[in-house]
Design a protein around this nucleic acid. Sequence first.
DNA 1: GTCTATAGGGTGATAGAC
DNA 2: GTCTATCACCCTATAGAC
Lengths: 222, 222
Amino acid sequence: MNPEIATQEAVNPDPRDTKDRILDAAEVLFAQYGFDGASLRAITQLASVNLAAVNYHFQTKEALLKAVYLRRLRPLNADRLARLDQLESQAQGHPIPPAAIVRALIAPAFAALEAGNPAIALMGRAFADPSDSLRAILPEILGEVAARFLAALRQSLPHMPPDLLACRMHFVIGSMAITLMAPNLLESVSHGRARLPEHPILLEELVQFTAAGLAAERGAHA
Amino acid sequence: MNPEIATQEAVNPDPRDTKDRILDAAEVLFAQYGFDGASLRAITQLASVNLAAVNYHFQTKEALLKAVYLRRLRPLNADRLARLDQLESQAQGHPIPPAAIVRALIAPAFAALEAGNPAIALMGRAFADPSDSLRAILPEILGEVAARFLAALRQSLPHMPPDLLACRMHFVIGSMAITLMAPNLLESVSHGRARLPEHPILLEELVQFTAAGLAAERGAHA
DNA sequence: GTCTATAGGGTGATAGAC
DNA sequence: GTCTATCACCCTATAGAC
C-alpha cells in the first residue's frame, strides 16, 4: 500500500529471519509478563511479524514456549555434561566429591542467568503448571542430564541406596529451581529484612547445602 | 420462567452459599486444569452459579485464586506454628534439633496433601508466575511462618550467621515446594525408572536432607 | 515454502435490569 | 444479591497472495 514503507523494508531488512524474531520477542515478553500475560499479538508486534506467522512456524502458543525453552536449555545442558565429563576424566576413577558434582549441575544455570538469559526464570512454569502438555517437555529437558548426574552420584556415594540418591537429587533440583526462578522470594517474604547473597557466593552456599544433604547419614525413621 | 424449576430450587437449596460454592469448584478445577485451563464459565457451571457471581464476590479471576489459596493455607500455617509452639514449650530453653524444626514446617503440608487438599499442588504457581499480582500474596502466606521458624533456627544453630540461615531456609522451601507440587517429576524425567517413596518415608527423607543442609559446616569459598 | 488477511469460537470483565 | 446481555480481547484455523 505505502510504497515508502515498502521500499524501506526492502532496503533495510531485519537480518534475523521470521522464526528467530518470533523466538526473541517471545522470550522477552514471556519472561516479563508470563505465559498468559504475553499475548501472541504483542509478541508478533514486537517481532514486526504477522500474527499468523506464529501459527505457521510453531503451530501453537505452547509449542512456541517449548521452542523458547529448548533453544536456551540445550546449550546449557551441554555445558553441564561437559563439566561432568571433565570431572570424570580428571578423577581417573577416584571418587568425585558430591559438591563438585552438584556444582557442575548448578553453575551453568547461574552463568546463564548472569549472562542475561531470560529463559531461565521461565523454567518454573514447567514445574508448576498442572497441564500435561507443558510438563511433557521436562523429560526432554532433564532426562539425559538427570541420568548422567545420578550415575555420577552413585559412584561418588557408593554406600547410599540408589533410590535414596534419586530422591535426594529431586530435592537438589527443587532448591536450585526456586533459587533460579524466585531469587527475591526471601526479600519479599521477610519484608526486605533478609536477602540472598550475590551470585558467586549464592552458588557456593547452594552447593554446600545440597552436597551436605546428599551425603547425610540416615537416621531412624519415625 | 419455569415455575417447576423455581419451586424445586426453593424446596432444595444448596446449603453452601454462593461464595463457598464458587471456592469449592474453583479449587477443584484450578488444581486439575491449571489457572488458565479452568475457565470461569466452567467454574460457575460446576458451582451452579451465574457467571457474573464470581465477579460480584471476588472482582477478578486472580483474586479468586488468591481466595482459594488463603482459605487452605491459613489453617495449614496455624498448624505449623502450633507444632513449633509445642516444640519450644517442651524444650524448656534447651536447643531444638534442626530436624524437629523443619518437620514442624513440612509435616502439615504433607498432612494436607494426604487429606486430599487440592490447593497444595497449586501453590507452585505463586512461585513460578512472574506477574507481580500473584507473587504479592507470598508475604501474606509465608511471612509470619518464615519469621518464626527462622528465629527458631537461630536458637537451634547459634554459631551460624543469621544471613546464612535465611539463605538456607530459602533452599529448604525450594525442596519442599517442588516435592509438593511436582511429586512425579522424578518418574517422568527418569522415564519411569525412579520414583519418590511413599509419603511417611518421603517426609522423613526430606526432613533429613534439609536438616543436614541447614547444619552443614562451611567450607572455603572458591 | 513463506507470509498475509480474515473469520470463528472462546475468554474475562462490566453495565444495568430485576 | 443475582442475572442477562454485551463488550473487547484472545488463540486458532484456513484460504489464498507472493
